[in-house]
Amino acid sequence: MRLGVLCSGGKDSLFACYRAMQEEEVACLVTLVPKNPESYLFHTPNLHMVPLQAKAAGLPLVSEMTTGIEEKEVDDLSRALAIAAERHGIEGVVTGALMSVYQSTRIQRVCHDLDLWCFNPLWYRDPGTYMERLIASGFRVIVSGVFSAPFDASWLGRELDRDALSLLMQYARDFRITLTGEGGEYETLVLDAPFFHRRIVIEESEPWYRNYRGVLDVKRARLEER
C-alpha cells in the first residue's frame, strides 16, 4: 500500500514513518506550513526543516500552506492529502499521533471523506518503551523548543540520548509533563533516522529562551554523508 506520512519534523512523525516503511511503501511526506511564520515558530519550530529531512530520506514532499485558523486547518489538510493522492498515488495516511483524540479524530474524518486509509502506529504506546526504542533504533533527535517548567535554556539543541531520557523521566514524575512531550512541553527535531541516506548538520542556529519558553531557530543546515 502506498502511504503518505504527515510530517512535522519531530520524532513522532518520523518514527511513525520508520515503522510504516517496515510494512508498506511510503510514497511521500506531507506537511502543512502556516502562512504567518510569527504564529507558528512557537508551535512548530522545525517545519522549515522538513524539506531537508525529505531530501535526506530521498522522499518527495507535498507541502501546502495553511491559514492557521483552526476551522480552516481541516480543509487545508484535506487539500494537501488530495494533492498527495493525485501526485503520488497514496492510498493512505500515517500520523505520529500518540494520544491526542482531538488530532486523530480530525485526521480520521478527513481520511474517511477522501476514502484514504489512516494509520497511527504509535497510538497509545507506552511512553517509556517508545522513547527507549526511538533511541535504540538509531534516531538522532534534538530538542528544538521548550514550553514548560522545568526546562532551562540548556535543553535547546540538546540531544535526546539516554541521559536526557532519564532526566525527562524524572521531570515526568516530578513536574507532570508528558514523557513524550505530547502535551506540548517540548518539541523535537530529527537530524538522522535509520532510513535517512544522509544526515542533517546544523551550521548555524540561534537559541531564544525566556522563563521556561524557548526555541532553537535553525538558520542554516546542510546534508552530509553518514
Binding site: A20, V94, F119, N120, P121, W123, Y124, R125
Partner: peptide
C-alpha cells in the same frame, strides 16, 4: 502484523 496491529492490538495488550 500490519500497522493496524500497532494501533488496535498493542494498546489493548498494554
Amino acid at each position: 502484523g500490519s500497522l493496524s496491529m500497532d494501533e488496535f492490538v498493542l494498546p489493548v495488550g498494554r
